[in-house]
């Protein structure tokens, strides 16, 4: 005969085998006296985390959290971002929060970096990501096989055709277009991009 009284603290800790847990649940349904006792053990188990030391998080975690709930620095782009990348508004916010996560960025070269992110079904086959180019940096010369959408989130840049891109711009390029992109401003040039079939090619003289 299992001593159900003895199993209560183990149930509260979540360490029982499934059949024992079921036996405890059956007993709880029949004996209200056990319910309040279990609550005491659950409250006890619920305090154990306090034994740990507090550790201050990096500042970017809060920035990311606020972005994810719609109070971030890129919130004004969330609705457009959701449309371009075929994600929900909440999904857009969570992806925009990645910008403030240093662990997400991968270096491209000395002055630029990228985050690849997953987009919705309407973007199947596309390369979707954030690109950040430091002042003076250039995104290398390339041609796209399909169309390209660029949503500028911060800063400004000039492409090799002379086109100026500024914060808030949404630029759509046709298939076959080729260019590079140079940050001519004083702050990082940051954009979200949806591109199909990107080929890095030699820039014509």
């Amino acid at each position: 005969m299992i001593d159900l009284e003895e199993l209560l603290p183990l149930y509260a800790l979540g360490v029982l085998a499934p059949e024992e847990a079921t036996a405890v649940e059956r007993a709880l349904a029949q004996e209200p006296r056990l319910v309040s006792k279990l609550a005491q053990y659950q409250a006890t188990a619920g305090e154990l985390f306090s034994a740990e030391l507090r550790v201050a998080p990096s500042l970017d975690v809060k920035a990311r959290l606020m972005s994810s709930i719609g109070a971030g620095r890129f919130e004004r782009f969330a609705a457009r971002f959701a449309k371009v990348f075929d994600v929900t508004l909440d999904g857009a916010r969570e992806l925009l929060a990645w910008i403030d996560n240093p662990g997400k960025w991968e270096p491209m070269n000395a002055l630029s970096k990228v985050i690849h992110f997953p987009a919705g079904p309407a973007c199947a086959g596309a390369d979707t990501g954030f690109v950040s180019i430091a002042p003076g940096g250039t995104f290398p010369y390339h041609r796209h096989g399909g169309d390209e959408v660029t949503l500028v989130l911060a800063g400004s840049a000039v492409d090799s055709t002379g086109k100026v891109l500024r914060e808030g711009d949404q630029i759509e390029e046709l298939p076959g277009t080729q260019h590079d992109l140079t940050n001519t401003g004083q702050e990082d040039f940051l954009y979200a991009s949806r591109v199909y079939g990107l080929d890095y090619i030699t820039k014509p003289e």
Binding site: F49, S50, E52, L53, R54, V55, A56, P57, V61, K62, L65, M66, I69, G70, A71
Partner: peptide
């Protein structure tokens, strides 16, 4: 209220991070 979440975070983030790190 987004500020309420910010405040709750300020109050408990370091305790929760300690637990997660453990």
């Amino acid at each position: 209220n987004q500020n309420a979440l910010a405040e709750l975070y300020e109050r408990h983030a370091d305790l929760m991070l300690g637990l997660a790190l453990r």
